[in-house]
Write a protein that binds this DNA or RNA. Structure first.
Length: 134
DNA sequence: TCCGGAAAGT
DNA sequence: ACTTTCCGGA
């Protein structure tokens, strides 16, 4: 797998990402895991970032780039934001995410309802959005 | 831009 | 089960 696959496991979720990337033995990383992963890394803040003020809300600042990165991770070079956002929409019924209506490219994690109860070991540490000044 | 059905791939 | 692909509709 080309760049971006090795050493990019900042969150040590047990079993989530055995071998990141495209190799046959790699687990199928889920999109919301991947989103959380990007959100955690400061180097992607120009691409995706937590929304100030709203807990769990994030903005995709560069949809094409997020899609490109996701496509790279999943070895789907034809990935684009249209397809990625369809996958995000499937999370609405699953109560993982919902859309922040009226705000472009803005979604919100249902941390209270789903994520925290099921994954209490997730430590949401955005790099300075709501803990400090950034 | 965003939605969600439908079909297909893994 | 979790997308990926495609698309008509709002």
């Amino acid at each position: 797998c080309p760049a971006g696959c090795s050493g990019s496991a900042p969150l040590s979720f047990p079993g989530w990402e055995r071998r990141a990337g495209c190799s046959p033995g790699s687990r199928q990383i889920q999109l919301w895991h991947f989103i959380l992963e990007l959100l955690q890394k400061e180097e992607f803040r120009h691409v995706i970032a937590w929304q100030q003020g709203e807990y769990g809300e994030f903005v995709i600042k560069d949809p094409d780039e997020v899609a490109r990165l996701w496509g790279r991770r999943k070895c789907k070079p034809q990935m684009n934001y249209d397809k990625l956002s369809r996958a995000l929409r499937y999370y609405y019924n699953k109560r993982i995410l919902h859309k922040t209506k009226g705000k472009r490219f803005t979604y919100k994690f249902n941390f209270n309802k789903l994520v925290m109860p099921n994954y209490p070991f997730i430590n949401i540490r955005p790099n300075g959005e709501w803990g400090g000044q950034g």
